[in-house]
Nucleic acid binder design. Structure first.
Lengths: 234, 234
DNA sequence: ACTAACTCCGTAGCTCGTACAGTATATTGG
DNA sequence: CCAATATACTGTACGAGCTACGGAGTTAGT
């Protein structure tokens, strides 16, 4: 994964590489979802036998983690942007990445980044945060929280686009329908009031952008408080 | 799951119930983790054949979602507490629940709550937030974010307790060791600076409490801004 | 009683990951 | 140039685990 294995070895030249294998696997996951990802299919797509893959990957699990990192796009570059602007980009791009590859959310989405590409994202966020005056450990905390926010909104998006298995009514509609059927004002006063106010959004663009920015600004307001505090007493 | 199936039916009396089945499954998951949960084991623990379970549950998947909701404890009761105090409790209890049942994090942890017990938590948070002046949709957003925060910190805790598979060095130690080996100052300036400052914590009590409260207060500062804004112009 | 609806059981089938043993290929050392 | 050896890949097969299916016993309605 870190691309560090040169050396002239003995036997036949490898016909493949970890990169090619993960690439093929990603293509399949994109097309058929994680549930539709079989080792045999990956092999078939590469024109080799199933067992050939095990020369590049010890186990399917390992392939999955390689896929997760390989799929990570380049992070937006900070440049000279204000931290708030940059991190808005960063978080939105992070979310869009996850939303565009739903299978990522099925592979332990809340483990810390372990590959080179994932770490680059973390690096950029830390750079910007520390540049704006935060201590290193504070920056780590903020970055972690932002990443969690991106992940959870992406998951929400996904969940609202049909995964919530209600009979023949996917999306927010399906979810609120289920709630309406079971939520009574006595046991769930707050929830049923929220339902009455249609707080769960009516369109499928829920969390699309307004809500996303809303929660993010909540966080940033907090960060702002912290930064100004640091500027007074570093 | 919603416990709504009365009616005198015809055949033999059911010897089990969905409740008993999920209870048994939960016991096994607690003991052996999600990976060690086999339908046959659940059946054995109940003294029935494997296939008997399929009278109560259509598929293993369905059993899992039932487990998730059944495992949810009662939410803390709001009483007259200040929103900030209550939600601190709420979020911490949420996190502790997830941390105490690691298998929960393996069952699509970021889908919105669908069962009665999970919804009770959402309900309490909404009640408190709306009572303090937020609009319904704002409350939903905040609650969602808090839940995500609880989930991600729980996952972080879990990840730091050995899941990060580094050879013979679990915990933060293992993670930072891996980073140290691969992160160079040129490609990862921010990250390597953070590593030098030991920002990733030295003890295994990382995120234990100080960091948890830190991120949470960040969020709450943002909420506070919002609430005071709402009090001026509702 | 008789039948219909229902619960539970045993068996068997299917899917999928992967261990193993064999064969072909390239590199090294004599 | 020719072994010897390490490596890449193949085919077969095994094992784990979920679940479809048909049968046997059980209770309620008529």
């Amino acid at each position: 994964m870190w691309g560090r294995e040169p050396g002239a070895r003995r036997g036949p030249r490898p016909g493949l590489s970890l990169g090619l294998v993960t690439e093929a696997a990603i293509a399949i996951a994109d097309a058929k979802g994680l549930a539709g990802l079989r080792m045999s299919d990956v092999a078939a797509r590469l024109g080799v036998s199933t067992m050939a893959l095990y020369g590049y990957v010890a186990t399917k699990e390992e392939l999955l983690t390689a896929m997760v990192d390989a799929a990570v796009p380049d992070p937006p570059e900070p440049g000279t942007a204000h931290w708030r602007d940059y991190l808005t980009d960063w978080t939105r791009a992070h979310r869009d990445h996850l939303a565009g590859r739903p299978w990522l959310l099925d592979i332990s989405p809340l483990t810390p980044p372990a590959g080179p590409r994932g770490l680059a994202w973390l690096d950029r966020a830390l750079t910007v945060l520390m540049r704006s005056g935060l201590a290193a450990d504070e920056a780590v905390n903020v970055a972690t929280t932002l990443s969690a926010y991106a992940t959870s909104t992406a998951a929400l998006l996904r969940g609202l686009q049909g995964s919530v298995e209600d009979e023949a009514a996917p999306g927010v509609a399906g979810y609120t329908a289920t709630l309406d059927r079971f939520v009574d004002a006595e046991n769930y006063p707050g929830l049923s009031e929220a339902l009455r106010s249609e707080a769960f959004g009516q369109g499928d663009d829920w969390v699309e952008d307004a809500d996303f920015a809303f929660g993010l600004n909540l966080l940033f307001d907090g960060v702002e408080v912290l930064i100004s505090r640091r500027k007074e007493q570093p």
